[in-house]
Design a protein around this nucleic acid. Structure first.
Lengths: 351, 351
DNA sequence: CACAGTCTGTGTATCGTTACACAAATGGGC
DNA sequence: GCCCATTTGTGTAACGATACACAGACTGTG
């Protein structure tokens, strides 16, 4: 560590001795000030200041009390990405809001994608977990369950005994794809990763069931529903997979498929970021939207509104807050209030 | 809490009894598996699984070991804002990266702006603190110092015994303002909040020294330097203050000052977000950039590049990583390697 | 065959607090 | 002036784990 602590941290007992009171009196001074007379309190505070006592040791306190005062967030993706994915960030803002209101810390569990992630979960000193969208086979899920702490899953996969917060992705996907595919002859999907391997690339005849990220899977199914409802064959729909939710990656991937004879005339993207990356590539290729290319996004971010992007509106921040509340035992369980979404039609599609 | 734990969490002693070994053997099985023979290890693991033992209690472990396995981040602003300010988010990504590499959690201390914030710091179970830019008088600073834990301050204010990571804000402000003010007659500043009160509004004859956020103060000073070097009088420079680093707020504030006879012909903003909000307002007012209005930002985000904004480039993510490393005692102290910045000239100014 | 050097398993004390039960001091009502 | 109720201070026993020192069972060496 950077700072060499010249003296070891004083203990409560030392403060007690210095103030000539019992340890319990010191404890009460911090935990229940009203329990102690004003004079004694002053004596204790003074002794504490003199010794440089920073207050009860958080670890010891939480061991004894049985609560840590922090909520854990487990991100299904490497921690590094968490702050780079705007959707995750919005979600975290909601969790953070509730934490702040309760005076709780927000501990982000360091997921790296390695097998030791489960240990990281087991070692996290928290009072409960919020799990951000992950894959069916993510090893952190059993670890969260084993902890015995209250936990809520966002997005999926659904777990026994864990409340679940998500919109009906399949239905929303159907709705947005209906708008995108209305006049389409060569439809395409711009997708989140299918599984933890996150292999990017363009796929033909992709079976949605093969995607182990439930959110990706359900959206693919919804897109298929819409295309088939329009009389098309799913096997004709190509799926371009991005490893991460990044406009930049979408842009470079789109550049590869927007030229050539079989370039799509309609693309449904799984996020506004991906859609906007695509639109940048389209603009560079001299394509007009929606004339040459219909595009839809997902999330209704500010940027989507500015770009006139047809999209699905969902309030990720509110969902984050909801997850946190459920973990804290506030509010009712999942089923009672389904999470809302809305189709927002703009100029990137023509109906 | 949402989940009613049917059984209390099993303890190590119970596992030991079930596996017919000593408690220490169980402890070693988890902490130093090599210390235990393969058979015994199997016995213990099996007993643990049978009882649903989730592994050593993190609180107890950290009390005994003296380390918590988590790094604390203190944001000088209410926790709610943390994930909404793109700059803070980029910084956090850097901190998170280092944490993940070390298998450390990242605990965000719940700052709300109330006096109890200091207690929240004292109660945080972490091994060290990273303090994000705050004001001179922020009560969390003494609390961090009192904790005796290693700590690093980003941006400011500089603290005794705490390494400090920041660019030379004043020099950078001088450089960017020189570009903005080159042909200006009615210069203006679009500023971060001056102090914890975060009072928004337009100020005349503002003394930079009055700003208690060091970053704000230094940048104001740099802007003043540049204007005075160009032969102007600082008292003629108006300062528009935003409460938060938000494009939306900047846009609405700018709308009020871009019309009228004394509208500015050059504005230096303290962030790209603020600058972009201003540019949106300018576009709506029919003003051309840089013709009618020279604009500069700060941070060189993707959006700034896309908008052709002259700005200061600094790598906040790298700075976050650097802070985390310093807290962990990796790398040398602040002075040795000054943090870099660069003026990026684009089309929003004309030289 | 004796002896040093591993490898494994085991008690004990302790990390720094707080819950709980109890005792002493204080105050008020009649 | 007595008694009950409140206020205030105090010991003791956990909370659940790990550091440490030690003991017995092995191994291999000369």
């Amino acid at each position: 560590m950077a700072k060499d602590p010249s003296r070891p941290r004083p203990t409560m007992a030392e403060v007690a001795r210095a103030a000539k009171v019992s340890v319990m009196t010191v404890s009460y001074t911090y935990a229940q000030p009203d329990r102690v007379s004003e004079q004694t309190r002053a004596k204790v505070r003074q002794a504490a200041t003199r010794l440089g006592y920073p207050g009860p040791h958080p670890g010891a306190r939480s061991l004894r009390r049985g609560r840590t005062g922090s909520l854990g967030v487990v991100l299904g993706e490497p921690l590094t990405y968490a702050f780079e994915d705007p959707q995750a960030t919005r979600f975290l803002a909601g969790v953070a809001e509730v934490c702040a209101r309760h005076g709780l810390g927000l501990t982000i569990v360091p997921i790296t994608g390695s097998p030791s992630d489960a240990d990281r979960v087991a070692e996290a000193a928290v009072d409960g977990f919020v799990v951000w969208t992950t894959s069916d086979d993510d090893p952190v899920l059993p670890a969260v369950a084993a902890s015995g702490l209250p936990a809520v899953v966002h997005g999926g996969p659904r777990q026994q005994d864990m409340p679940f917060v998500a919109i009906d992705d399949r239905a929303a996907a159907r709705a947005v794809a209906a708008a995108a595919f209305a006049h389409a002859r060569r439809p395409m999907v711009l997708s989140f990763p299918l599984d933890r391997a996150r292999t990017p690339g363009i796929r033909n005849e992709l079976d949605p069931a093969k995607a182990t990220f439930p959110v990706t899977r359900q959206r693919l199914r919804g897109f298929r529903d819409a295309w088939e409802a329009a009389g098309g064959r799913w096997s004709h729909v190509r799926v371009a997979v991005c490893a991460r939710n990044s406009a930049r990656e979408a842009e470079s991937l789109a550049t590869t498929f927007l030229s050539g004879p079989d370039a799509p005339d309609a693309v449904v993207a799984m996020s506004d970021e991906l859609a906007l990356g695509l639109m940048r590539a389209a603009a560079r290729a001299g394509l007009t939207v929606p004339g040459d290319l219909a595009v839809t996004g997902w999330d209704d971010t500010d940027a989507a509104a500015a770009a006139g992007l047809t999209t699905i509106a969902q309030d990720l921040r509110a969902q984050g807050a909801r997850c946190a509340q459920l973990v804290l035992g506030e509010g009712t369980d999942d089923e009672t209030r389904p999470t809302e979404w809305q189709l927002v039609l703009r100029d990137s599609t023509s109906l």
